[in-house]
Design a protein around this nucleic acid. Structure first.
Lengths: 217, 217
DNA sequence: GTGCCTCTCCCCCGAATGGGGAATTGCTAG
DNA sequence: CTAGCAATTCCCCATTCGGGGGAGAGGCAC
């Protein structure tokens, strides 16, 4: 863990890369990190692409990665960084505990998951924990992961259809979009409804948005 | 503007109250305000209720008010503060430029509207401007306000029906909820669809969410 | 291989949806 | 006062949606 001793006075401080598209959030995290004498801000990115570039450049010990960023999302950025640097320690950071976001972030190689309404002391503690090789999953998030374990996971096809449906497309339009019959689309949606335990498309959109299965705009 | 000279060295600094439920955002705004020698943090709230309480207690010159907060939303808090203190200078602060949010915040008495992806220098400039009695509306937001000016504004009844529909209720369930016939509900929805320029409920939910007419959670 | 899952397509059918027109109450802004 | 608008109710009708069952092709695991 002491293979990079860059500039600055602090020896072996934990170097943290911040990736978030909100300047206020970046400033807040940076300020808190700055105030800790064992932490250091290694860089700040406002897109997933920049996060990757800065990771390559600085090789930080920990990355605080917002999942919703323009140009390239946090999940994709996490994926590419861990693909290139398997030892990367990335903490996913987001506003809400959507199931899908958590799962995808962890699948992409994130070492933990933080919610933005968590106290800064908790964030700092999580950064230290991850830097020391631990995993960080908030109890609420872990419980949510356990609840929707396997049976109710959607297939890629179902996710695709759900996404198009959430955009407001009719069954026929979805069928046209994926090059299948509308009967097939109906079957997929039927299955989606069963797994999400809903009966109408509107409810499905709500649940999907709540779990982060689809995203607005 | 010099009727309150609290503690601290700075004479006649602009005292700013921060209201946001994300600790990182509060820390970021506080850090930036702290760094300016003509600004001062008068207090920090993480709910609308606390914002009101702190406003009464400290009478800040400017309030940075997040619109999405638990317990009591920013719009309601703005409304109550301006009702009690007509001279209050409140800057609405939110992540996305939903039409309805802007309009409601301004109707509630906000003196301006800031987006969270704006640079901190812009936020600081806006705080100074509002403290000096100016109004602050970003060009993108102003354009959006102009576009959906009058004709397409929904009536309260339509908003109510739209909200219930977005929750996944069927026409009959909505009718039951508001104590009307489902035929009436259909008419309201028909009108809503026309104003939102959509054809299905799913699309309507998307547009409504995008414009902030209804909220997830 | 034999199962299990996924994806695909088909049929039927009742319920819900969305669009057309028409009309009655109130309230309010000019 | 009058015109306009919001809100309400009703009609008809074509389309869409959602649930039921059945069934075949391909992939993967045990």
């Amino acid at each position: 863990m002491s293979e990079h001793q860059h500039s600055s006075a602090g020896i072996d401080r934990i170097r943290v890369l911040i990736a978030d598209d909100h300047p206020a959030v970046r400033a807040g995290l940076a300020a808190v990190i700055l105030a800790e004498n064992d932490l250091l801000v290694a860089g700040q990115a406002d897109t997933g692409e920049q996060a990757i570039a800065l990771y390559r450049e600085h090789r930080p010990d920990v990355v605080l990665m917002d999942l919703r960023m323009p140009v390239l999302g946090g999940v994709e950025a996490t994926q590419r960084i861990t693909a290139e640097f398997p030892d990367a320690r990335i903490l996913a950071l987001t506003s809400y505990q959507g199931d899908a976001d958590v799962r995808r972030a962890l699948d992409a190689g994130a070492r933990g998951y933080l919610l933005k309404h968590m106290l800064m002391t908790e964030v700092i503690a999580a950064v230290r924990a991850v830097a020391h090789g631990e995993w960080v999953i908030p109890p609420a998030v872990a419980a949510s992961l356990a609840r929707h374990n396997e049976r109710d996971r959607l297939t890629t096809r179902e996710l695709e259809v759900l996404g198009l449906m959430a955009k407001g497309l009719s069954n026929k339009e979805i069928a046209l979009a994926i090059g299948r019959t509308d009967e097939t689309v109906k079957i997929h949606l039927k299955s989606v409804f069963a797994k999400l335990k809903v009966a109408t498309r509107t409810e499905a959109v709500r649940v999907a948005l709540g779990r982060g299965l689809v995203h607005v705009e």
